[in-house]
């Protein structure tokens, strides 16, 4: 199985997720295992319905697993209370959603301050941290604009800034380019890559192989099962990127 190194940031072992739909029980994740180490840039690829969204919800602590184990930064997440999960989401995970998920009535700065409000920080410190994050994504000039006054790319950058504001160990991106055109999508991906180079651990969920290519490591989700690309299980740290041909084939399979 996947290595059980002590310093794994995300360590998922034999994770099962079932939903009850009417009288039937649907198993979405069928014993998935995955380890993510600090500094990783992992892409989870799969067609729609493969269970990758459920995977992302579980990793993001938005949903709880039915069975198996999920250790985040050394803490077992399964069985934690709602409050504890909220705390983990606040401190450990920065979300980047496909639809940006910014609050329309708040300005860019206020949106970035929101997770810091829930952390209970004083106003001055909040402002500084949010400003720093916005400057990091190149939006230092437009902090007092509302989402409706920003372009799609800028909105996604605000969302990334919001995710960065709390300095979380993991950035969780769910189809970050899904709602953007080619060019701005590329810009956002470059930004994510840059963040990875600066040391942020990134988990990216996508169905687009071109997007997945940008990641240092790709895992394929299909029918509730996860396949690590060949030769990666033992040597993922040593090998930065697969030959393109292998990934191309994976896309065709997916």
């Amino acid at each position: 199985m996947i290595g059980t190194k002590q310093d794994a940031l995300i360590e998922i072992t034999q994770l099962v997720k079932q939903y009850v739909m009417g009288r039937e029980t649907v198993t979405v994740l069928k014993g998935v295992s995955l380890s993510v180490y600090p500094g990783d840039f992992v892409a989870i690829v799969g067609p729609s319905g493969s269970g990758k969204s459920t995977m992302m919800n579980v990793i993001g602590c938005l949903d709880t697993p039915t069975d198996g184990s999920y250790k985040l930064d050394g803490t077992e997440v399964r069985g934690l209370s709602d409050n504890k999960l909220a705390d983990i989401r606040n401190k450990k995970i920065g979300f980047i959603f496909q639809g940006f998920h910014l609050l329309p009535k708040l300005t860019a700065l206020e949106n970035c301050e929101l997770p810091l409000i829930y952390r209970g920080l004083p106003a001055k410190q909040r402002r500084e941290m949010a400003m720093t994050a916005l400057e990091q994504v190149g939006l230092g000039e437009r902090v007092h604009h509302r989402p409706s006054e920003l372009s799609g790319g800028q909105q996604q950058r605000v969302a990334i800034a919001r995710a960065l504001a709390t300095n979380p160990p993991i950035l969780l991106a769910d189809e970050p380019t899904g709602a953007l055109d080619m060019k701005t999508g590329q810009e956002v991906l470059s930004l994510i890559e840059e963040l990875n180079r600066k040391g942020h651990t990134i988990v990216l969920i996508t169905h687009d192989m071109d997007v997945a290519k940008r990641a240092g490591r790709t895992v394929v989700m299909r029918d509730g099962e996860l396949t690590e690309t060949v030769g990666r299980r033992e040597t993922h740290e040593a090998q930065p990127r697969l030959p393109d041909g292998v990934q191309e084939r994976l896309v065709e399979q997916a």
Binding site: D82, R89, Y118
Partner: peptide, 16 residues
Amino acid sequence: TREIGIRKSLGAKRRD
């Protein structure tokens, strides 16, 4: 509802 979801994903607790 979506706003509540966003707030929760950012770490809002139930009591918040």
